[in-house]
C-alpha cells in the first residue's frame, strides 16, 4: 500500500512536467496549427534561465590568499560573490540560495521574448507550409538552441539546488497513519506539483475568464470568422506562443532542483510530451493535462519491482503501449475533438 501511494506521488510530479509541456504544445497547435518540435528546447532554455541567474548572482571578484596555495603551488585565488560584498554575506548567500525561485521572475520576460522572436522570426513563415516542413524547421531550431546552450555551458549537468529550506523531505506516512519514514516525499517535488497546478489553473482561467482568452478560443475554433469580424487574431496568437513558451520555461526553471539540467534535457521530455498530446487528443487542453498526469503515474507504476518482475522491461515501453491502446480504442485520443488534423 505504502509503495503504491509513493508511486502515485512520484507519478504526480513526473506528470506535472509532462502536463506543463504538453499544455504549451497544445496551445501552440490549437492556435497556430503548428507542431512545435522546439518545445522541449524551450523547457531546457527555461532551466538554463535558472542556471544563468545562479551564475549571475555568483559572479565573483578574486582576491589572492597568500597563506594557501592552489594545485600548481601558486597562491590561492579566493572568489567572493559581488552580491555578498554589496548586501553583506548573509543576504548575499540567501540570494544565491534562492536563485531558483527568483529565476521565475527572470525567466518570464526571457521566455516570452524568445517566444515572440521565434514565432515572428521563423515559424510565421511556415504557416502555409505542410506539417512536415513545420516539424523539420522546429526540430532544426531545437538542435540549434541545444548546441548554443552546450557551447556556453558545456555538456555536463550543472547542479542547481533548491533553497536550503526546501531541501529535505516530508513524512507523508505519519500524516495518514503509517509508520514513520514509510512514505516520505521531497519537499521540492511537492512544490513542483503545486506550482504546476497553479500554472495550469492560471492558463485555463486566462482563456476562460478574460476577453482576450475568449477571442483566442474563438480563433481556435474558427480562425477565419474571427478574422472577418475585424479582429487581429494573428497578433493574439503570437502572444499565445509567448505564453506557451513561458509555460514551458517555467516548467524548466522549477525542474532544475529535481535533476541537474543539461543541454539535452528538452529532447528527453519532447518525445514523451508528444505522446501525451496525442493520447490526450490533439488540440484539447484538458486532454493534455489529464494525459500528462495519467502517463506520469502509469510510468511510475511500471518501474515498480513487482510489475517489472511480471513483465520485464515494461518501464521502458509503458508510455508507448498505453498510446497504442488508447489510439486503437479512441482514435482521437482521450478528449480529442472531431476534425482536428483530419482534413
Amino acid at each position: 500500500m505504502d509503495a503504491i501511494l509513493l508511486q502515485i506521488l512520484n507519478g504526480l510530479d513526473k506528470g506535472s512536467a509532462y502536463a506543463l509541456i504538453a499544455l504549451g504544445l497544445t496551445l501552440i497547435f490549437g492556435t497556430l496549427g503548428v507542431v512545435n518540435f522546439a518545445h522541449g528546447a524551450l523547457f531546457m532554455i527555461g532551466a538554463f534561465c535558472a542556471v544563468t541567474l545562479q551564475r549571475l548572482l555568483s559572479l565573483s571578484y578574486v582576491t589572492i590568499d597568500e597563506t594557501r596555495t592552489d594545485f600548481l603551488g601558486n597562491p590561492l585565488k579566493v572568489k567572493t560573490p559581488y552580491v555578498e560584498s554589496w548586501f553583506g554575506p548573509e543576504i548575499g548567500q540567501a540570494l544565491i540560495d534562492w536563485s531558483v525561485p527568483l529565476s521565475i521572475l527572470f525567466a518570464i520576460p526571457v521566455m516570452v521574448g524568445l517566444g515572440f522572436l521565434i514565432e515572428r522570426g521563423l515559424i510565421k513563415h511556415f504557416y502555409k507550409r505542410p506539417h512536415a516542413d513545420q516539424i523539420l524547421v522546429t526540430f532544426g531550431l531545437a538542435i540549434v538552441l541545444q548546441e548554443i546552450v552546450k557551447f556556453i555551458y558545456g555538456a555536463n549537468p550543472i547542479p542547481t539546488p533548491a533553497p536550503e529550506a526546501f531541501s529535505g523531505s516530508f513524512d507523508f506516512g505519519v500524516l495518514i497513519g503509517f509508520e514513520p519514514n514509510a512514505i516520505i516525499y521531497p519537499y521540492w517535488r511537492m512544490i513542483y506539483f503545486v506550482f504546476a497546478l497553479i500554472i495550469i489553473g492560471a492558463v485555463f482561467a486566462f482563456l476562460r475568464f478574460t476577453t482576450f482568452g475568449m477571442v483566442v478560443r474563438a480563433g481556435m475554433a474558427d480562425r477565419e470568422t474571427v478574422g472577418l469580424l475585424g479582429i487581429n487574431i494573428d497578433r493574439r496568437f503570437t502572444i499565445m506562443f509567448g505564453v506557451a513558451a513561458a509555460v514551458a520555461g517555467l516548467a524548466g526553471v522549477m525542474y532544475t532542483p529535481i535533476n541537474s539540467p543539461n543541454y539535452h534535457m528538452g529532447m528527453d521530455f519532447l518525445v514523451l510530451s508528444f505522446v501525451v498530446v496525442v493520447v490526450g487528443g490533439m488540440g484539447s487542453l484538458p486532454g493534455a493535462v489529464l494525459a500528462g498526469f495519467l502517463l506520469g503515474i502509469l510510468e511510475s507504476f511500471a518501474s515498480m519491482n513487482e510489475v517489472k518482475s511480471i513483465v520485464p522491461g515494461i518501464d521502458q515501453i509503458i508510455i508507448y503501449l498505453v498510446a497504442i491502446v488508447i489510439l486503437l480504442t479512441r482514435p482521437r485520443g482521450l478528449m480529442g475533438r472531431k476534425g482536428v488534423m483530419e482534413e
Binding site: 505504502d2 509503495a3 509513493l6 508511486q7 512520484n10 507519478g11 510530479d13 513526473k14 519514514n181 514509510a182 512514505i183 516520505i184 517535488r189 510510468e299 511510475s300 518501474s303 515498480m304 519491482n305 518501464d315
Partner: peptide, 9 residues
C-alpha cells in the same frame, strides 16, 4: 525517483 522510492521500504 520511481526506482529510488522502492528502496525506502
Amino acid at each position: 525517483s520511481s526506482y529510488i522510492a522502492p528502496v525506502l521500504n
